[in-house]
Computed example of a mutant assay.
Amino acid sequence: MIARRTLLGAAGAGAGLLACPPLLRAQAPKILKLSHQFPGGTLEEGDARDRICRKFAAELEKRSNGALQVHVYPNSSLMKTLAQFNAVRKGALDLSLVPLSYAGGEVVECNLALMPALVTNYDQAMKWRTAKVGEELSKVLADKGVIILTWIWQSGSVASRTHPVVVPPDVKGIKIRGGGREMDLVFQAAGGQVSSMPSSEMYIGMQTGALDAAVSASTSLISFRLDELTKNLTSGRGRSFWFILEPLVMSKIIFDGLPPEQQKLIREVGLELEPFSFEAAKRDDDELVKIYAARGAKIHDLTAENIETWKVLARDTAWKDFAGKNARTAELLKLAEQVT
């Protein structure tokens, strides 16, 4: 009798499971880890790049009914800054928001993402994703195991604890951080002493005198508080000789292992964040000027003529160097020049 009751109970339980809504029978959610180097905040406040990551996580969880969850790790708290791109390539990290120029030593084509005076305004930057250069760069990265989900461009400004840096001769004799190999080549040609470091280390560099000046995205110059050490700011609002691509990327290994409907959702959410990323970057360009001016820094805006002097130098140094690496880099540069 006991055995019969047990069997009947088990049968009843099975019938109950069959009657449950699919959501209740769903498997445990897929947890994706997203690491970046920037200061953490909230959905509404803090570094715009961290907010992009949090918005991506919140929207993905909402629209997947909890089946996809993204845990965001700011401040390189999960993984060191310069290790993140390689980890994404190998599937050891699911997602990252990373300056592509940091990966230039590993994937030479990534140096295009911070090519001096190649992209000089946001209207031009916004065209890359749908232009041939964007298509080809995406293929290069996919071949290396990385998928771009959100194209995030940021204008660069120059924070200096000495004199202003507006045209190439201003770099002569100073210690300066450019943020990427090709930018460093231009600064070296202008007579500067180049110091390579991620943006998260700029403050200590300026504080100790290891840096006289640093070029970085406006958002970084705000988040890393260089206003405390800056006497002259060359603003990147409106135009700049320094534009960087800092996309939200995903490991192709991880992406390919997901069901098609989840892949589609991830791409949709990533693309929908692009307008926010551009508007946030523009707001930070303006906010940077306000913050630094309030600290007493002198503000300098770049003219079209200023940028042309950087472009002339870049063509003979960084552009030439990049195009000479291989046939693919030469073609990428040619395609990029067509985006005006």
Rank of each mutant, 00 (worst) to 15 (best):
S220I: 03
K334Q: 15
V312H: 00
A67I: 09
V194T: 12
A304T: 04
K80V: 09
A336T: 10
F322Q: 13
L273V: 07
P259S: 11
S220M: 04
C110P: 05
G9D: 10
A293R: 14
M206G: 15
T6F: 01
D123E: 15
H163T: 01
R129F: 01
P39N: 05
Q37R: 08
T219S: 12
I204S: 13
L271W: 11
I152Y: 00
Q193H: 13
A19E: 02
G134Y: 04
F276L: 04
A297M: 12
K311S: 06
A13V: 14
L68I: 05
V312P: 00
T309N: 02
I222S: 03
L24I: 08
F187G: 12
R283C: 09
G91R: 01
E59N: 14
S160G: 05
F243G: 12
A297P: 05
K325V: 15
L93K: 02
A281T: 12
E182H: 12
F278N: 01
W242D: 11
K290H: 09
S157H: 04
A28C: 02
N111Y: 10
A3E: 03
M206P: 08
Q124Y: 06
M1S: 13
V108S: 13
S196E: 11
G40S: 04
G12S: 11
Q188A: 15
G178H: 12
S96F: 05
T329V: 13
V269A: 14
L335K: 10
S96G: 06
L233N: 07
K55C: 01
L258Y: 07
A293N: 08
M197V: 14
L185A: 10
L211V: 14
A142V: 11
W153Y: 09
S235G: 05
S96A: 13
C20V: 13
A314I: 11
P22S: 15
E261A: 14
M202R: 10
V107A: 09
K334G: 04
T150K: 02
G205P: 06
G205D: 07
R239L: 07
L43R: 06
G270C: 10
D143R: 08
K334C: 12
P260I: 06
L149M: 05
S251Q: 02
G205Y: 08
E45V: 06
T219P: 01
L313V: 10
V133N: 10
P29V: 07
E305C: 03
